[in-house]
Design a protein around this nucleic acid. Structure first.
Lengths: 141, 141
DNA sequence: TATTGTTATACTCTATAACTATA
DNA sequence: TATAGTTATAGAGTATAACAATA
């Protein structure tokens, strides 16, 4: 009988935590945490989106988007821009500094990858990336 | 230039969280959370260990082991047994009910796997398991 | 009245520090 | 005095609920 440690669910869950801890350390120097990076990512990879839209995409509470955005504004990484036609809405937009910050976080993630994937050859790294992407897509909706 | 989402670190971190959420739901009916399952796993897969040893293996605070163990004792899943030669030490031992609970959690994890790996064929599932195991080993120490 | 964003509050998780008992 | 375990306390992270502004 296979044990719980043999399952993808258990391995992905525990390993995800270990890797996330390293990522936290890797980006801490830039004054951000994984949630901030995730927000930067979705801002970067979509048409200008309101805070509520971003909350839905990230599956986090709207009030948390406010806090994360406040912090990123303070860092100069994003700007809030009111919708002229519906003044309730505020779009979050990356600044040049925000793009540089995101690039720095990507570089930090690649440094973590060096450690995480130290035991894998290039082909295995690509295989793993592909398989994780497939799983992500499965869980996407 | 590769973005942060292309890295293993970012994917493993975010995906780990999503999968962990599903695992939490899957075992909630048994009255346990992932930390309890992790404690059951290490108790099951080692010589009788003191609470402090278990804390070190799980990389969690000794005080947390106390809380988790209290809960598992209340569920009847483990028993505390004092070391006769050093009455400060308490070994945590699985009961039969604990073994059944662990088996139920493994079954729950396999149900989560059905969802997580729905987009992968059997060969890909094995590949992913193997690659994750390799990465786990790399990060083990 | 409904929706967007914000603020206030509460809850969960977990660690650190203080304490007890045994050595 | 040092160690295993326990209890008390505090901090981080995040959600829910109450509120403000606009539609």
């Amino acid at each position: 009988m296979t044990g719980v440690t043999d399952t993808l669910a258990y391995r992905l869950g525990t390993l995800g935590g270990r890797v996330a801890d390293r990522f936290i350390q890797a980006v801490a120097g830039y004054g951000v945490k994984p949630r901030h990076v995730a927000l930067l990512v979705v801002i970067d990879s979509s048409r200008p989106a309101s805070q509520l839209e971003l909350a839905r995409r990230l599956r986090i509470a709207p009030s948390l988007v406010v806090q994360l955005a406040d912090h990123l504004v303070a860092l100069g990484a994003i700007e809030r821009s009111r919708d002229a036609r519906d003044r309730r809405r505020q779009y979050l937009l990356l600044t040049d500094a925000g793009r540089r910050l995101l690039a720095a976080c990507a570089a930090a993630a690649r440094r973590v990858d060096e450690e995480v994937a130290a035991g894998l050859d290039d082909g295995q790294r690509d295989d793993l990336r592909l398989l994780l992407a497939k799983v992500s897509d499965t869980l996407a909706p």
